[in-house]
Amino acid sequence: MLAFALRRILVAVSVALTVSVASFVLLHLSGDIATAIAGPEAIGEQIAAIRAQHGLDRPLIVQYAAWAWRALHLDFGRSFYFPEHVTDLVAARMPVTLTLGVIALAVALLVAIPLGVLAAFHRDTWLDRAALAVSVLGQAMPSFWFGLTLILIFSVNLRWLPVSGNATWKHFVLPAVALGYYAMPAVMRLTRNGMLEVLSSDYVRTARAKGLAPRKILVRHALRNAVIPVIALAAVQFGFMLGGSIVIEAVFSLQGLGQLAWESIARNDFPVVQAIVLVLAMIYIALTLAADLLNALLDPRLRT
């Protein structure tokens, strides 16, 4: 297990390095940064001065090394637009997006896994069909539209929950439901299929032949095996939710990372964009690493 973990971590680190190079290079390919900073009215000398000031005249590899070294210390330089450091900007917005993502993932899993188990248990009954309908709806509805519908019902008409902002926990309920519902169908189906497969497996038959209670068969023998692929999917979905919360953040005016990314792209605020891309990528890598380690913990066959 230790050897597996070490190897897996090494892979994660090399992926992280690759991503950092890619995000650095991409930004430099997207145009002359000095010109962008200087603005449309700048003359050649000003641009040259900015280039020297930001160290943009050095060789690319040196720039990368310097940038990566600073990034390692969570220093992403200053925003071109705001007076603050990029790190502070990102750190201020991060909790909102993370909170939203975690709650949305919890919503998705708490609905999807029980629903998937139930659907598998009552295969081809009205319950199974209802679960399928719920999941198809989740996949078919655009999340911004679903978000607006939720606002209309629960905020405007019923007045139970606030329309927008991120002041209290109540502000997160609707966006998390909207975001989570989007991730739910895939998890639900995978759980259902996994359970169907596992319930008809020989080892569940063995467990029944032992005279084991149904509850124990379900949890220990069925669910534990069925949930293994779900973990990997959940990690990927969580990554998508963090990166893809941009739409939901816009609908609910949440001051999260997605909003910041969107605004920074519009303002050519490269350091911010670069930092967000890198941070999200790192979170994504950490998530898949965590999912793999968790899977190896659950499934001894993966530990080789």
């Binding site: 020989d202 080892y203 038959r205 063995t206 032949a209 220990r220 023998h221 095996n225 001894p300 066959r301």
Partner: peptide
């Protein structure tokens, strides 16, 4: 008690 044909699949792989 019962024993089955496929000893690979009749045992829970993660236990």
């Amino acid at each position: 008690a019962m024993i089955f044909q496929e000893p690979m699949t009749a045992l829970n792989p993660v236990m």
